[in-house]
């Protein structure tokens, strides 16, 4: 194979700069996982439906499989690895743990980042809004029951 053109991109992930050389076609999700080594962001469909790859870009929850790494210079990217404060779990992580909001754990980072992005802007959602937002992502194990419960609890905790 001939060497494909790669370009240098500086990604700011979880407050840290990563200089990576990628082909323009490398998705943000693949760049985070394979070039930055942050494999907490998962790929479940790579066409924008399942939401396992959800991260925060400038504070907004986005599907990282639907963006290219070359687009993301200068963005503040946040992944699941950034959520806990050292050994202290983020209230959303804590609530997922206490409420059995995960089974296989594959969809979990996407749901955590979706919830984190949403609750940061909407700290007191009603049930209907919360259900609508959490229907953004797919989970195959939990039937969503305990995910909903966990995010509801986390919202309360975060409101203090």
């Amino acid at each position: 194979m001939t060497e494909r053109t790669r370009v240098e991109v500086e990604l700011t992930v979880n407050g840290r700069s990563h200089r990576v050389r990628v082909e323009p076609r490398r998705t943000l999700a693949d760049a985070l996982r394979d070039d930055c080594g942050l494999t907490g962001t998962h790929l479940g469909c790579e066409h924008g439906v399942c939401g396992a790859c959800t991260i925060l870009a400038d504070g907004e929850p986005v599907r990282s499989c639907l963006m290219f790494a070359v687009q993301c210079e200068g963005m503040d990217l946040r992944t699941v690895e950034d959520l806990a404060d050292g050994d202290r779990l983020h209230p959303i992580q804590q609530a997922f743990w206490e409420n059995h909001g995960l089974q296989c754990g594959f969809c979990t980072p996407g749901f955590l980042m979706l919830s984190a992005g949403y609750l940061a802007q909407n700290p007191d959602p009603d049930e209907e809004e919360l259900r609508a937002v959490l229907s953004s992502n797919l989970c195959r194990c939990t039937g969503y029951q305990n995910i909903l419960k966990a995010v509801r609890q986390a919202a309360e905790v975060m409101r203090g």
Binding site: G48, T54, E60, P61, R63, Y118, S136
Partner: peptide, 12 residues
């Protein structure tokens, strides 16, 4: 707008 995809789709 509320029917356009899901939140992460709508922000992009």
């Amino acid at each position: 707008a509320h029917h356009v995809g899901h939140l992460p789709i709508r922000v992009r």
